[in-house]
């Protein structure tokens, strides 16, 4: 599924401008990393794609469906197509890993089954396969709260995969992880993008991880896109444009 931003602005109720006239096209199957300082509008960009943040003006379509006007059932259908991964994993910590991954199948649940919270065999099979893909199937019946951060993020990835999505959005998925684990999770995302052809948009705080994994980098600052190009082009000049200062040793150590 492709994602097309056309002159999209987002103004929050308190008047903050989250996005400022953003126009972008992300092709189906691309692996895009969005970088920028904290407050640059990365989360806002990603959250408009699945309608968690409403668009104020402009038009945004995902796979041909207009997001801004989608409501109710149509919005849920769209969201079902888009898996999301969060910085804080956002698992229901008191439920089992399996219970969490199965929430990725909610969109496929019939009314009657949803009333009693029952899942079909087929759904459970999909959930198991998703867990196998991130290599954590042996923890299927463990409480989510008992896993390490890296394990929890993999469960979250499995939850997104269980949706069988066409798009995966990841909002700073490695910001709460130590560097080795962060690289493992990034590699998982990259591999899923390559194996399954899922369009992937990842927010990252730091440029060097972006350079390592992205096909394409989008740099943001104050709600605007200030760089858009292949990872190889993101040199020190670009860094200064995005972060407003030059590169220091600290920035590349991770």
């Amino acid at each position: 599924m492709s994602i097309v931003f056309d002159d999209v602005s987002v103004v929050y109720p308190n008047g903050t401008r989250g996005l400022d006239k953003v126009s972008l096209t992300i092709a189906a199957g691309e692996f895009v990393v969005v970088v920028g300082l904290s407050g640059a509008g990365k989360s806002t960009l990603i959250r408009t794609i699945n309608g968690l943040v409403p668009v104020t003006s402009g038009s945004l379509s995902v796979g041909g469906t207009e997001v801004a006007t989608a409501r109710g059932r149509r919005l849920r259908r769209l969201r079902a197509e888009i898996g999301m991964i969060f910085q804080g994993f956002n698992l229901v910590s008191r439920r089992s890993v399996m219970g969490n991954v199965l929430t990725g199948r909610l969109h496929a649940q019939t009314m009657l089954r949803s009333a009693f919270g029952m899942h079909t065999k087929a759904d459970k099979e999909i959930a198991f396969e998703a867990l196998e893909r991130v290599g954590i199937v042996e923890k299927a019946w463990v409480r989510a709260s008992q896993l390490s951060g890296g394990q929890q993020q993999r469960v979250a990835i499995a939850r997104a995969l269980a949706q069988q999505p066409s798009v995966v959005l990841a909002d700073e998925p490695v910001a709460s992880l130590d560097p080795p684990t962060a690289n493992l999770v990034m590699r998982d995302l990259q591999r899923i993008n390559r194996d399954l052809g899922i369009t992937t948009v990842v927010n990252l705080h730091f440029l060097d991880l972006a350079r390592r994994y992205a096909d394409r980098i989008i740099g943001m600052r104050a709600g605007q896109v200030v760089f858009d190009g292949p990872a190889a082009d993101a040199d020190d000049d670009v860094f200064e444009r995005i972060y407003g200062r030059s590169l220091t040793a600290e920035d590349v150590s991770a």
Binding site: F86, V92, L106, H107
Partner: peptide, 22 residues
């Protein structure tokens, strides 16, 4: 904690599914 609820919402859950699962 609103974050798991948001995650379930992002997965396309209905009001009742959100309440039951998150």
């Amino acid at each position: 904690d609103p974050r798991p609820v948001e995650a379930v919402t992002a997965a396309g859950a209905t009001w009742w599914q959100r309440i039951r699962t998150a």
